[in-house]
């Protein structure tokens, strides 16, 4: 679709969201290298268009389960940047109130961000329960659960999608397929028909599915918009959807992973020719929708936002021993 068909604010917001996600991650890795952040971080660089494109049609009332490579997803859903920086830095003003972020558990119920399961793929079944809850309460909310391609090998993928299909729940499963499950290559992780996709699996559950270029934010946006509208409408024959977004990651499974199992030329090819931000930026300029000055201004704003968020997070104190005994029971 021609860019002129889109609302200009939306086009710019998509760029802002992707850029915020990218810059957030780059600065987080800098903090890691400075020794200020401990634990594991799974970088989502290269995946930004998927979360931005999906979440553009979600509202605060809608629910999100992000996954371990999920900062992009939380940022796209509107989580506080200083909140998640403070989590990574282990500060009391983090979204978890000082419990930190080695293997993420960022949270923001007001934005519908319900958290993350440390064991891969569990959101398939948690989202089924959330979908049942939405349907039972009769609201027009939607629950989106992000996972990687590796998680579809887990038992709970079947359990979750079977419920979602059986009860026709307003749930959208998003697979960020970066062709790697930790260090395991896609073809060694999944039994598929020749030329088949993970999305094909949804067919047998009568769950509508799409395979989309996960590095093209507008393509993702279009697919998600249709799926989300359908999920909101109780009269639809199928409210559930599985979206498989094809992408690639630029870094190892976690920071510190030497990623010897990845081919440097392949990474370079994706970076050079298929980067979701570079390509989208070029599209915005080539179409004449925005000029260099517009985008430079936005880029400066994003940088300032990130800088301020880090400064605020670093100003927050590190919790003491008492913190570990708080909040277990309600």
């Amino acid at each position: 679709m021609a860019l002129s068909k889109y609302d200009k604010d939306l086009l710019l917001d998509l760029y802002r969201t992707m850029l915020t996600s990218r810059r957030f991650d780059q600065e987080l890795i800098r903090l890691l290298h400075d020794g200020k952040v401990g634990g594991f971080h799974h970088s989502g660089q290269g995946h930004e268009a998927i979360a931005a494109g999906i979440c553009a049609s979600l509202e605060d009332k809608d629910y999100l389960f992000y996954h371990h490579r999920g900062c992009n997803q939380q940022i796209s859903k509107g989580i506080s940047l200083e909140g998640i920086y403070a989590d990574f830095l282990g500060r009391v003003d983090g979204t978890t109130g000082g419990l930190g972020s080695g293997i993420v558990h960022h949270v923001d119920p007001d934005k519908g961000i319900l958290g993350q399961s440390g064991t891969i793929g569990e959101s398939y079944i948690l989202a089924a329960g959330v979908g049942y809850s939405i349907k039972y309460r009769g609201t027009d909310q939607v629950c989106v659960a992000f996972n990687g391609d590796g998680a579809t090998a887990r038992e709970v993928f079947h359990g979750g999608i079977n419920w979602v299909g059986l009860y026709n729940l307003p749930v959208i499963y998003v697979i960020e397929n970066n062709l790697l499950a930790s260090s395991l290559h896609f073809q060694n992780s999944h039994s598929l028909k020749e030329g088949g996709s993970l999305a094909d699996r949804a067919d047998s559950y009568d769950v509508p599915s799409f395979v989309v270029d996960g590095n093209d934010v507008l393509a993702v946006y279009e697919v998600a918009k249709e799926a989300i509208a359908r999920a909101r409408n109780p009269k639809e024959r199928r409210r559930c959807t599985l979206i498989e977004a094809m992408t690639y990651r630029y870094r190892g499974h976690f920071e510190g992973d030497s990623a010897e199992y990845m081919d440097k030329d392949v990474i370079e090819e994706w970076r050079e020719n298929r980067d979701p931000l570079d390509n989208y930026r070029k599209k915005l300029l080539d179409s004449g929708t925005f000029n260099e000055k517009d985008l430079t201004k936005l880029e400066k704003e994003v940088d300032d936002t990130i800088k301020n968020a880090i400064a605020k997070a670093e100003a927050s104190p590190i919790p003491g021993r008492d913190r570990i005994f708080e909040g277990l029971y309600a």
């Binding site: 079944i125 948690l126 809850s133």
Partner: peptide, 11 residues
């Protein structure tokens, strides 16, 4: 898992 999802969203 579904019970947990229900519980954190009001049921």
């Amino acid at each position: 898992g579904a019970a947990l999802g229900m519980a954190i969203t009001g049921l």
